Amino acid sequence: MDGFATRVRTFDAFPKVDSEHTVRSLRGALSTIATYFFALVILWVEVGGFLGGYVDHQFVVDDQIRTNLSINIDMTVTMPCELIHTNVVDITDDRFLAAELLNFEGVHFFAPPQFFRINSQNKEYETPDLDHVMRENIRAEFYISGQKINQVAGAPACHIFGTIPVNHVQGEFHITAKGVGYQDSLHTPWERMNFSHVIQEFSFGTFYPMIDNPLDMSGKITHESLQSYKYYSNVVPTLYERLGIVVDTNQYSISEQHLVIRKDSNGRIYSPPGIFFKYEFEPIKLTIVEKRLPFIQFVARLGTILGGLLILAGYVFRMYERLLRLLFGRKYTERDTEKKDGGLLAAEKKDS
């Protein structure tokens, strides 16, 4: 038993070299200092990464059954409110007049280019990162519902805003002129149509006013009366999570088609002009979650990195010494070195 305890006490997984078999030099000291410096930097970075965590992006199949969703709209169209018709229709042939829920306000059209992307293709859009979403996750709603507030008869433009509940299926929300495409007691003359517009907000799901979307702050200006604007969006549910705080929202990609409706020889048109938002929902879900490595995994990772650094530093130093020896000779490399006396070879040399 005593022999086993002695062997355990003397066991060393990493045998050390006796001091009399080592050579000390200025180059070796500098390499040791540099190695320890890089090791401290790596230690600082890894500990900071462990405490701060990391952001994990995953696409998963959306297994949640969703029956309905809301569309948040805030836009201005260059037509009087009394000439505008809004409607929602989906693939199930479910229709309802969006005007019953939206708010209409007579205003003057205003689209300063320094605030709006005018006549752009809306291609420069990036997914909001976790920090931005967590800073701006202030929920809000258009608090006036089903009322036409401050509607001014004869105002040249119409501010349309509100929230529309829709079925969670492929559908379309469109803005057209009254009497065009739908039967109405009022028929809008061609010359009074102008579907120039600016969009302050267009989003799906819970309304987060500070989170940017592809169509936010964009606009289209035209001088054609029979202009058609079509926006095609693919909606992806997106979940942000950090420290138990969950922001469940939706993102979408956008593509556009713009065309001028032509009349036939009889002065009729085959499709109505207007603004059409066509949407469909993807069966996948994007999760953006802040995670942290388990402590055991962190320790193993840190030990592996630091051990690899020490081994690499040893190889680099030996290669550097051999290169100096090849270029300048043995005497140059042994200059300014110090070796302790002792050991079997030193004793034999002294006896001789």
Rank of each mutant, 00 (worst) to 15 (best):
I269C: 03
R139K: 14
E100N: 04
T32M: 10
G219C: 03
I65W: 05
Q200G: 13
T188N: 05
G52E: 01
T10Q: 11
D56I: 12
Y240W: 05
Y240N: 14
T304C: 00
L286E: 15
F96A: 12
Y332C: 04
L215P: 04
F38H: 06
G181W: 01
I211T: 05
G28I: 07
G162S: 09
T67V: 10
H132V: 15
N122W: 00
D63R: 00
N167K: 13
S233R: 03
D90F: 06
I71L: 01
D341W: 11
K350S: 09
L324V: 05
R139Q: 12
G171L: 02
M193R: 03
F14T: 15
T206N: 09
S265L: 10
S25W: 04
W190M: 02
E334I: 04
H174S: 11
V180E: 07
Y143K: 08
G154I: 03
V60N: 14
L51P: 08
K123G: 15
G179H: 00
G329N: 05
T76A: 02
L324E: 14
G343T: 11
D212A: 14
L83T: 13
S120P: 01
A153K: 06
D74Y: 02
T249Y: 01
N250L: 03
G52S: 05
K339E: 13
V107E: 12
R335W: 06
L43E: 11
L97C: 09
Q64I: 10
L259E: 15
G267F: 02
H197G: 06
L43W: 04
F59Y: 14
D248P: 04
T86V: 08
T304F: 00
A29F: 09
Y54M: 00
S19H: 03
A313Q: 02
I144G: 02
N119T: 13
A111N: 12
V260N: 07
A29V: 10
A347T: 10
I65F: 06
